[in-house]
Design a protein around this nucleic acid. Structure first.
Lengths: 337, 337
DNA sequence: TTGAAAGCGCTAACAT
DNA sequence: ATGTTAGCGCTTTCAA
């Protein structure tokens, strides 16, 4: 079933059918109706490949996500989808594995799908100009920046929170409430990524509070999954004692709270827990997780706004930094000596 | 950058480049090397649209998901992706909104992307033959069956658990442990979907245990989100009393446990909770949720196996029913009178 | 082993 | 208002 079949059925030319299909105004109402009817009854759907091939440019925006299952990404994906849709573009969602190179994947996707622009979700923080060379369309790093790479700020766009500053705030919230033995649960202290940034914020907060860093309080999971977070927290408990833990992500914090409880510590009576992200589910843990909520909807909206400004030539690249909001929860208590 | 540019750069014809790109054997090693080198340095990626257009059939399998954010779907999507990949096909992931018609979306996707087959995740349970008429390629309903539709069993494939039977098991687990005032938390008793099936299992289990159905114990949320689950559980608590709740999904159960706690009930001391699904996170609630785990990996694997058997003509349609496994958890206690 | 050329389904000039 | 036709980038006969 092609456009020619429809044309034949209606006794018109292919261009007329094409015009109807693309909502061009110069078609008589009668013919338009006839064509639409034929399209409907034949269940005809235009072949996108042929369209893409012939159109000067597509209306596709790519979204490359590392780990669609990441709880924190869900609302961001949703927002991006909505924003792209509202702007009249088509979203092409592409998920990659943790091992895959997102820039490589993005470049392939961009060329094969003729993308106009790209949103990268959950990518690396250390691109070099060579890495991004293959990407010849506008792109926005969503939820991260190139803090560890050599990519100039003028050569890419981003929307994110200030990971270091927010981590600083989270830990300061603990010191403000009297905690001094504060552990940190993270992926790795030098992953050149989110862990490292948030770890720096932790260190700076301790320093500013006159607390010296105790390596025993640093728990590295080496991964982002719940099982490792649980395990590391158990080990942490056996290794040393502390009155609070700063966890770099909500999901890990859920596992950490479980580990604390299984290790005989009540949250928040014996140990406080604070995290960053703010996934919906952590509002339903017992106790509710105290966390710095990322503005997921705005992150997605803003990413698309920046991208389309670039795509449509309204503006050049830019970097936007958003802020978190403290969701008080019940996992942090004030220490009264 | 097209195949012609590469051809020119190497001083060969486009057909030769095409042969190299498609791993045809009849190219001299020298030329092959030269072409590959040019491809690499030019960052050339073949235009997929052009390829799709000219190839008799694509190597694409579609996965249409309603709600990518659904925790329970994550591992299934992962498994499908892996299986499709391993079989040498390309997965096209398409997420739809809750309002959208998945068959409509699937049909469009199928035609525009020339899909060979489709996996439907989280679709409706009540298709009619007319609904699926537009779908002229093999498809598999993953995690559901057409229990409420008029579609003949011979005209589609499915992989799922027996929702009614599994719900029956879950509730029987409660009655076996002495519970008789058993509430149920679900979306709707007649949604012609998963809720309705699991509700039937609940009713049957009560009947078989000689317990009469009390309408006050039936809590309908009207939606699948956490907030509604929480609210309905709070209302349930005010309305009547009970010693156990059967929740039709893990995610809702997490919210329910919170509501019970906030309503002054300890789980499992004052109220037991059992659910179906088995998402990773519910293993980290306090207490660990007792639930019937769905074999998510197998659901995905089997869906792809069935689909490819159909696509490659090895076999016709078929229906596979898998079983859940009880994850004991700590949210159910035995009632000792 | 290689090249020339047809044509996949569609859109957008350019004609009429 | 409608039709004719030239490609878009690619794969694949068919010929050399």
């Amino acid at each position: 079933m092609t456009i020619r079949d429809i044309a034949r059925r209606c006794g018109v030319s292919v261009s007329t059918v094409s015009r109807v299909l693309n909502n061009h105004p110069d078609v008589s109402e009668a013919v338009r109706e006839r064509v639409l009817e034929a399209v409907r009854e034949a269940h005809y759907v235009p072949n996108n490949s042929a369209r893409d091939l012939v159109r000067p440019q597509s209306d596709s925006i790519g979204l490359v996500v590392r780990g669609i299952g990441n709880l924190f990404f869900s609302p961001v994906i949703h927002a991006v989808e909505q924003a792209v849709d509202e702007a009249g573009y088509t979203l092409v969602l592409h998920q990659i594995r943790s091992g895959e190179d997102e820039l490589q994947a993005a470049a392939s996707l961009a060329r094969s799908k003729r993308l106009r622009g790209l949103v990268l979700l959950g990518g690396c923080f250390d691109y070099t100009p060579e890495d991004t060379a293959a990407l010849d369309i506008p792109f926005v790093c969503c939820t991260y920046t190139n803090s560890f790479g050599t990519l100039g700020r003028e050569s890419y766009s981003s929307v994110s929170i200030d990971d270091q500053a927010e981590a600083y705030q989270a830990v300061r919230e603990l010191t403000r409430r009297g905690h001094r033995r504060i552990a940190v649960l993270l992926d790795s202290v030098n992953d050149h990524s989110i862990s490292e940034l948030r770890y720096k914020g932790y260190c700076r907060a301790l320093a500013d509070s006159g607390i010296s860093l105790d390596p025993a309080l640093v728990a590295e999971t080496g991964a982002f999954d719940l099982a490792s977070a649980y395990e590391e927290t158990r080990k942490l408990l056996e290794r040393t004692d502390f009155t609070a833990v700063f966890v770099i992500a909500d999901s890990m914090a859920v596992a950490a709270m479980k580990a604390l409880r299984d290790g005989g510590k009540r949250v928040p009576e014996d140990c406080s827990v604070i995290a960053i992200d703010g996934v919906e589910l952590s509002a339903y843990t017992i106790p509710t997780l105290t966390t710095l909520i990322q503005p997921t909807g705005e992150l997605g909206d803003e990413a698309v706004r920046i991208l389309l400004d670039m795509v449509e030539g309204r503006a050049g690249n830019r970097h936007v930094q958003l802020h978190t909001t403290l969701r008080p929860g019940g996992s942090v208590r004030t220490l009264t000596p």
